[in-house]
Write a protein that binds this DNA or RNA. Sequence first.
DNA 1: TTTTTTTACTTAACCGATTAAGTACCCAAC
DNA 2: GTTGGGTACTTAATCGGTTAAGTAAAAAAA
Lengths: 338, 338
Amino acid sequence: MGYVTIKTLAKELNLSTAAISKALRNSHEISSITKQRVQELATRLNYTPNVYAGSLRGRKSKTIAVVLPEVADSFFSLAINGIEAIAEANGYHVLIYLTHENFSREQAILKDFQSGRVDGVLMSLTAETSSYLHINELYSKQIPLVFFDRVCEEISTAKITTDDFNSAYIATKHLIDCGCRQIALLSISNYLSISNMRLEGYRQALTDYPIQENPVNIFCGNDAAANRRFIRHVLSKADRPDGIVATAEKLTSDVYLSCRELALSIPDDLKIVSFSNLHAAAILNPSLTTITQPAFDMGKAAASILFKALDKKNNILRNENITMPSELMVRGSTVKDA
Amino acid sequence: MGYVTIKTLAKELNLSTAAISKALRNSHEISSITKQRVQELATRLNYTPNVYAGSLRGRKSKTIAVVLPEVADSFFSLAINGIEAIAEANGYHVLIYLTHENFSREQAILKDFQSGRVDGVLMSLTAETSSYLHINELYSKQIPLVFFDRVCEEISTAKITTDDFNSAYIATKHLIDCGCRQIALLSISNYLSISNMRLEGYRQALTDYPIQENPVNIFCGNDAAANRRFIRHVLSKADRPDGIVATAEKLTSDVYLSCRELALSIPDDLKIVSFSNLHAAAILNPSLTTITQPAFDMGKAAASILFKALDKKNNILRNENITMPSELMVRGSTVKDA
DNA sequence: TTTTTTTACTTAACCGATTAAGTACCCAAC
DNA sequence: GTTGGGTACTTAATCGGTTAAGTAAAAAAA
């Protein structure tokens, strides 16, 4: 089963393994004739260095991990593309790990990183993450870590977010301007700082533009069916909201479907703004007013910061918050014929 | 800088590294008292075995790779979930690699696998993949490989697909039944066998239910903007199609947007069936008639077969084609008020 | 011509974990 | 009393590559 290793090459060429290794790494200690012979044979035998051997010795794997809740979300899939663009330019591999919004999965994944599997980590927290021991443990092993979007304030490192407070404020104000008087906020987490920021922005808007009725904050979970039941329940009450700020993309279709079931018209009976990068937003029925995040650029920014730390010997990332602007894109779910 | 290794534990407990290793793996050669002491210390110091060391020795990494074109596609993101479900049950890690429909990227990724980075590979080809040397090279290194959806017929291994011929046939027949007389097929590849199967199914339907006009096969590329221009061009001609079978999800929004620009009504002026698992299909304007693939189950099936091969010493996967049924879901893009 | 330097390697240690083979000790059986 | 066997370890080799240190021969400097 002829694995071609450095030994195979050495034997074939009557050289030591050290000479082969050096030749392949273009060391000045090796004559150019020998280098050529080694190169040729390596190519001919299709030699591929064993990653595990190299990483074991060098404590470097040229690999980073991206940890995120799910991939079926346009924000995350765009962010991945941004990350990969930068990683490729830096000659790094990208491993994608999915938590599926599951806290214990997040713990297990970070635990695995302690083994030195990756040189650095980019991550976006689970909606359930409320304790940070596992993150601190990773942090204490000197593995550089950059958060994006769903950041952990408690860890002192670089964090890329959008202006969540402001975005929610603008979304809410937009609904108020459109005539909404009872506005609900759909959230996916009670723990995430971005959820809290969005909640505060929402509240601030309600305070600044005082409207009669009470705010309605609705927490949704991970179970799409339960969410739908829950949303349908809220929308079928007599004092149902007339406006919704959805802080996560996946909640939108639940709202749309519930409205259809309940024969509520969007935007006549209910107006919706959703945090979403959905490509199909423009062709929904009606088209969806969104707060769109610069997902691709956020991925790029997060990766760039990580590689800056990896390039230096000094792996320590200083605590910094980088905020990028989101954009309100007004469409048919809040304004007729928009 | 305090990496906790087996040596750390050995020194601390005045044991050999061998004893530690055996204790951690619950060997009968080690007394239960010692085992306990080792376990305790390991937990206390948060010892994590170095993956690279273990994999180097054991030639097993307990890791599989999933290679796919992109993640911003509901089929692939669902398939990933199916794969991960099975992988977790088998105690394996899943690394996701994206080719971005780029052939040379696919080559580079497979080349990397030759280093033994992963124990097995699940993959779906690039739309550009027309030569299979890189796959054969991987295959010859005895690394088990299972294809799903975008399979490579030329490699003798397990392949999971849907009944592409039949699905396209049914989609086309559905359009004919709805009154379409000039039906276009939008394809993303001239190379992929699933594209060819779908093309044949489409042709067969046109033959079986003969209609006056000629078929219109349109090939689209990777550039969304170019696709949109191209589709708009086709739809603005006098003899434009009145029906479209889109063989890839991402082409749908281009069609919708082009129709909007050209003031064509769906389904009155143009009817569309798309191969798609888009969750939002039901809330598009109009809702989208789809051929929906059992993406999650296909992922599960592919992973299950791979693990069956990995469990045996015998890594060889026999050449087999597993076909799973797709479903036509009739909605508003072909039938009014569906 | 002798000494120094350079060139082009080789030897051997090492990364962290696993494991075959060896060993010291105790207890039991013949 | 010696052999046999089990227990609980240790020693050393190994995986594949990297690299510090060593060396022999040729080239350059004295």
